[in-house]
Computed example of a mutant assay.
Amino acid sequence: MLLYGASGHAKVIISCLRANRVPISGIFDDDLQKKDLWSIPVIGKYNPDFDNESLLIIAIGNNQIRRKIASFIQHPFGKVTHPSAIIDESVKMSAGSVIFHNVVVQADVNIGKHVIINTSSSVDHDCVLGDFVHIAPNATLCGNVQVGEGTLIGAGSIVTPNITIGKNCLIAAGSVITKHIPDFAIVRGNPARVLKITYD
């Protein structure tokens, strides 16, 4: 496996890969000062010819940066789940996505490409997570929640059942979502309210 990104988020992905006994041959990173991470060589800027048959995971938490990098990667994308995660056999998980420690993903959840389901979060039945979504630590999605592409659900947030959240939204940590959220919204509070629509 190869990674792109050699910072804190990469450490958690490395933990997941090591728990699954998956070897990591190197890490791409645009910061040429970085030489290694946990004894794994950082090999510099992306090179499509380096170990070009290996799978790659983009180890960057920011949704927009992850999407930008995915647009030029030529390696095939991998996916990884930590062994402590409880994932129903009916779950569909697309390439590039990662599921971290102590996560629960229930029946018939559909996970898009390059999604992060972070530590101890819970995604209940029939949820749909668009590409480049990030479900932050300890967030809870109740049943049949739809999350649009590029949206961040902040740490400790709760989304009640049957809610649709648009694309490229920012749900602040600790928010409680009880109503549908439009695209490009910045949302905070309990109950949550839309603070701003960004349109970018």
Rank of each mutant, 00 (worst) to 15 (best):
G156W: 08
G5P: 09
I43P: 14
G44Y: 15
V147P: 08
A95W: 07
P137D: 06
G150W: 14
I153Q: 04
K34C: 12
G44L: 14
T164D: 05
L32S: 14
I58G: 02
A173P: 10
K196R: 15
H134E: 08
L141P: 11
N47R: 10
N110Y: 01
I197V: 13
C16T: 04
A192L: 12
S15D: 13
R21L: 03
A95Q: 11
S121H: 07
G156H: 10
V123D: 00
C127R: 04
T178A: 08
T81Y: 13
E53Q: 14
V91P: 12
V80D: 00
V115C: 02
A10D: 14
L32F: 11
G61E: 04
N52C: 11
A192P: 13
V105K: 03
S84H: 06
I65P: 07
G174S: 05
I99E: 02
I13P: 05
G8S: 12
C127F: 03
V133A: 09
H82T: 01
F28A: 01
D88N: 15
I186H: 08
G61I: 04
W38S: 13
Q74L: 15
D183E: 14
R67D: 06
N52L: 01
D29I: 13
D51H: 05
G156V: 13
V159R: 13
K167E: 03
A70V: 02
C16W: 00
N162F: 13
A107P: 04
N144M: 08
T81C: 14
L170N: 12
S175H: 06
A155C: 07
I87S: 09
S7T: 10
T81D: 01
H82C: 09
P191R: 00
D88C: 13
I65V: 15
K196I: 07
I171H: 14
V42E: 05
L32V: 08
N47V: 01
I165Q: 06
S120Y: 04
Q74E: 15
S54V: 02
L56R: 04
V98H: 03
A95G: 04
I14V: 08
V194W: 09
Q64N: 11
F132L: 07
A70Q: 03
S94Y: 05
Y46N: 08
D124W: 05
C169F: 11
R66D: 02
G112C: 02
F28G: 00
S15F: 01
V22W: 02
E149G: 03
C127S: 06
V187N: 10
V194Q: 09
H125L: 07
Q106L: 03
L17N: 02
L56C: 01
H75F: 07
I181C: 08
D183A: 15
N62G: 07
P48Y: 08
V159Y: 10
A139C: 11
H125A: 02
V133H: 11
P182A: 09
Q146R: 11
I135Y: 05
L37W: 12
I60P: 10
N102F: 06
I163R: 10
I111N: 03
I65N: 09
V42W: 12
P191C: 04
D36M: 15
D183H: 15
V123C: 05
S122Y: 00
I177V: 15
Q106N: 14
I69Y: 02
A95H: 11
S25E: 04
